[in-house]
Amino acid sequence: MPSRGWWPLLRPYVMIAPAMAGIGLFVLYPIFYLIKLSFYKYNLMNKAKSKYIGLDNYHQIFTRGDFYQALGNTALYTVGVVVCTMVLSLLAALWLKRKSRWNRIVQAGIFTPHIVSIVSIALLWMWLMEPNQGLLNYLFKLFGLPPSAWLQSSKTALLSVILVSVWQGIGYYTLIIVAALQSIPPTIYEAAALDNASRTNVFFRITLPLLSPQLFFILVIMTIGSFKVFDTVQVMTGGGPNGATSTIVYYIYQFRTTNIGYSAATGVVLMAIIGLLTFLYFRLLARKVHYQ
């Protein structure tokens, strides 16, 4: 048995050691290794030929046009997905908040895409969006609208990818907002009715502030997720046409074999951008979020 003197001091560290080992091994080590890689011109065939090049990779990133194109696409994609998904799932949730059998069926329906693999969804939508035989253009023609090139034009490709992501995400976020709406005590709405509040006033002064913790959570989670979009781009467009849908993660992926140091540096930049965005969200919005 260890003596009484040092064991109480040591005990807490021994207790958390397994968890810390896990974090160190699976979180801290990969991050630091990524950062280390980003300073090298790394040779995958012969490790000995790898060369420390300092900030050259970063210098290269910020002077290359294709990085800015990927960054721009990613930003557009993120704004599009976050705004559309939040607005649409809020509207859907307001519509579905009443507990009825029909509403439960609809809710289950719009949640279903969430349990389907994104690859299957992407393949399905590629088929729907096929310009000549696809269902979407068929419907467009039926209603007398001009057909769209969807994924095959650099003008509409990014929009098409956004459409698929929004379609896939709505159900999940609707579920979160519906749960939040149902937890608002009905007497608050009754009190508002007695206070002669109009519907818009009730929505903006009561409902929206009471939903703010959930909406803020969704905003942060979705921004992070959208900035890291990869699978839809990989399956549906491969970054094309002409780099129109190339996103940062896809950009990183493109250099996985040819220049791993460069792709590591891009990964570090992406991490910094997401960290900065999240920090900004908390600085600018956290005051407006009302926690019960």
Binding site: P185, T187, I188, E190, A191, A192, L194, D195, N196, A197, S198, N201, R205, I206, P209, L210, S212, H290, Q292
Partner: peptide, 26 residues
């Protein structure tokens, strides 16, 4: 009519002043 609820039904996102003022504003 005005009503006082059992659980008070105070608007949790508004200050005391805004709570009292809400009906007047409307």
């Amino acid at each position: 009519v005005a009503m006082v609820f059992q659980n008070y039904a105070i608007y949790p996102t508004m200050t005391v002043r805004d709570n009292i003022e809400f009906g007047l504003k409307n």
